[in-house]
Simulated scan of single mutants.
Amino acid sequence: MTMLDGKVAIVTGGGSGIGQATAILLARHGAAVVIADIDEGNACRAAATIEGAGGQALALRVDMRDEEQVAAMVADTMARFGGIDLLDNTVSYNAPEQTGSDGEIHEMDIAIWNRALEINLRGPMLAAKYCIPEMLSRGGGAIVNISSTAGILSLGTVPAYAASKAAVHSLSQSIATAYGKRGIRCNTVAPGFIDTPTTRKMGDQFFQMTLDNNVLPYLGQPDDIAQAALFLLSDAARYVTGQLLAVDGGQTIHLPVVADMWRMTAGQPLVEIA
């Protein structure tokens, strides 16, 4: 028996990157997994990987900004698996075309601001809105919302993304407080810079700067975030709720001058990227 046997999980943004790694890991530990993604092809490929390994999966194309589509996602999940126990909100909108910048606030296209809040905050809220009643009908459940270290400390170049991700943890705390007595836990995972095909588009220079400022001598992989989500969604974390877990290689634990001090004593770059 594995830790999630008999559980049904929805992973939003589950078609690629961190979401895909999370969906596959939850399935490996016994959960039936619904993979919701705006890219239907990616969702189907992730589901096929799970089914090929003997697991149960359902791929759904869902635009998480659309309340009707989110409601249909939950209805389809109920029709296929009969219940919902776990929700992982990995769905995310980053800077336009992964340039690493939303634009400065005084010249930002308001559409970028709106899109960031619609996807990064409205999406998880809608997923919770429709999943929570089904969790309550089963006596409780667990939710993990994926935030970002950009929502903890300012990166400066992504104000829309950062504001939406900071708000995600407030949403988690509100859910944890409102539904804890009814058996629902909710926590936030804040990834640091994770090595994915999407983030690779930001270039080796950005990777190197990130690595120089990490305490650990390597960058995170999608499975590092998936493992944190697995823990928080499982009964191993039964006494953990309303918390924010930064999975960031030590990025947020030190003063900004530390990387410069390392360079003074050890030369640069500190570690070469792979």
Rank of each mutant, 00 (worst) to 15 (best):
F206E: 10
K201L: 15
M264P: 02
P269K: 13
G220D: 03
T265F: 07
G220Y: 00
V258E: 08
N187L: 04
A266C: 06
T265G: 11
D204I: 12
L233N: 11
F206H: 11
M209R: 13
R185I: 02
T199A: 10
L232D: 03
Q205D: 15
D260F: 07
I253N: 06
H254G: 00
M264T: 14
R238C: 12
G220C: 02
I225P: 08
Q205V: 14
F206K: 14
V215Y: 03
V240Y: 01
V189I: 13
P269M: 14
G267V: 11
P269H: 11
L245W: 05
P217D: 15
A259K: 09
A236S: 11
V215A: 13
I253R: 08
N213C: 05
R185P: 01
C186L: 01
P191F: 11
D204Q: 10
N214G: 04
G192T: 00
I194G: 04
M202V: 12
Y239S: 12
G192Y: 00
A229P: 00
A259W: 01
R238G: 08
I184R: 07
Q208L: 06
L244Q: 09
G250M: 01
N214K: 10
G242T: 02
M202C: 10
D223W: 03
T196G: 13
D224N: 15
Y239W: 15
D223R: 13
F193V: 09
N214L: 10
G203M: 10
N213T: 06
R185M: 02
L230V: 04
P197Q: 04
P217E: 14
I194L: 03
L219M: 14
L219T: 13
L233I: 09
Y218A: 15
R263G: 11
D195Y: 05
L233H: 07
V247H: 09
T252D: 01
V247K: 09
R185F: 01
P222Q: 07
N213A: 10
Q205H: 12
P269A: 06
P191S: 15
Q251E: 03
K201Y: 06
Q268T: 15
P191A: 15
T265V: 09
V240T: 13
N213D: 10
I225Y: 12
Q205I: 12
N187C: 08
P256F: 07
A190E: 01
P256C: 10
D212R: 02
I253H: 04
G249P: 02
A229Y: 02
M264F: 08
T199S: 15
A226L: 04
P197S: 05
F193I: 09
P269L: 12
L233A: 07
A259V: 08
F231V: 12
A226V: 04
C186N: 03
A226P: 05
N214D: 05
I184H: 07
G220I: 04
Q208P: 00
T252K: 01
A236F: 03
Q268H: 12
G250F: 01
R263N: 08
F231E: 13
L219E: 09
T199M: 09
G203V: 11
L230A: 02
V215F: 05
M261Y: 04
N187W: 00
D223S: 12
T188D: 01
D248P: 06
T241N: 03
W262S: 08
P222L: 06
P191C: 14
